[in-house]
Computed example of a mutant assay.
Amino acid sequence: MGLLGRMLRNVHAGDTHLAWARLVGPDSITLTSPDFEPGGVIPRAHAAEGVGANTSPELAWTGVPAQTAALLVVMEDPTVPLPRPILHVAAVIAPILDRIPLGMLDHDSPGITLLDGSIKGLGYSGPRPIVDHGPHDYVFQIFALDRVPVSLRDPGTVLGRGRLTGTFERTSA
């Protein structure tokens, strides 16, 4: 079952194509989740439908600059065997918030506006790597911006940023 994953095991989009590489600014924000440790395994409940419950993890942050007009939260998989990382979710967050509760990246809610992602359009799409491709990194990134972005292509100036990486793997064993 995992033949394709094993064949593509050394093929990855890479970190150079993450939003992190394009949206440069001070690394002043600390991004955390009570659902997994930095570099730790993302629980199955946060994996995509068919693998898990596709529930977005809780995220919290500190260190947002006072002059922030909007926050941009992005989750990408740079380990996917494609030319560019997969965008699992993108959301514009009101700067008065300091956390996103469990499951709240699944739909627009007060203070949270979803942008189009690579997989299902609006809303969170959890990890679902190819079977036997190896562990995938899922990079949650937060950017403090000087204005409310209308798209990911034109986000404005980055006043601060932070990131949190979790891993997830599917095996045929």
Results as ranks from 00 to 15, higher is better:
residue 52 G to S: 11
residue 149 P to C: 12
residue 11 V to I: 01
residue 4 L to F: 11
residue 23 L to P: 00
residue 102 L to Y: 00
residue 139 V to Y: 04
residue 85 P to K: 07
residue 82 L to F: 02
residue 31 L to T: 09
residue 62 T to H: 00
residue 104 M to S: 07
residue 172 S to W: 03
residue 52 G to F: 12
residue 70 A to I: 09
residue 15 D to R: 14
residue 140 F to G: 04
residue 73 V to L: 15
residue 74 V to F: 06
residue 39 G to Y: 05
residue 172 S to C: 11
residue 161 R to E: 12
residue 150 V to F: 11
residue 85 P to G: 01
residue 128 R to V: 09
residue 85 P to I: 14
residue 123 G to V: 08
residue 107 H to Y: 12
residue 150 V to I: 15
residue 127 P to Y: 03
residue 87 L to S: 00
residue 91 A to M: 04
residue 70 A to D: 09
residue 88 H to Y: 03
residue 93 I to E: 08
residue 161 R to H: 02
residue 154 D to N: 11
residue 14 G to M: 00
residue 161 R to Q: 10
residue 142 I to C: 13
residue 129 P to K: 12
residue 81 P to I: 05
residue 45 A to I: 11
residue 140 F to N: 10
residue 27 D to F: 00
residue 115 L to K: 10
residue 20 W to C: 09
residue 78 P to F: 01
residue 66 A to L: 14
residue 95 P to V: 10
residue 111 G to N: 05
residue 128 R to T: 13
residue 73 V to S: 02
residue 166 G to L: 02
residue 21 A to T: 09
residue 28 S to V: 10
residue 168 F to T: 10
residue 17 H to R: 11
residue 34 P to Y: 07
residue 6 R to I: 00
residue 128 R to P: 07
residue 74 V to R: 06
residue 100 I to N: 08
residue 161 R to Y: 06
residue 42 I to A: 12
residue 32 T to D: 15
residue 46 H to Q: 03
residue 83 P to N: 09
residue 163 R to H: 04
residue 84 R to E: 12
residue 69 A to N: 09
residue 73 V to I: 15
residue 165 T to I: 15
residue 25 G to W: 01
residue 134 G to M: 14
residue 70 A to W: 03
residue 105 L to R: 07
residue 98 D to R: 08
residue 20 W to R: 06
residue 122 L to D: 07
residue 36 F to S: 07
residue 101 P to E: 13
residue 70 A to T: 12
residue 148 V to T: 15
residue 7 M to R: 08
residue 42 I to R: 06
residue 77 D to R: 08
residue 27 D to M: 02
residue 37 E to Y: 01
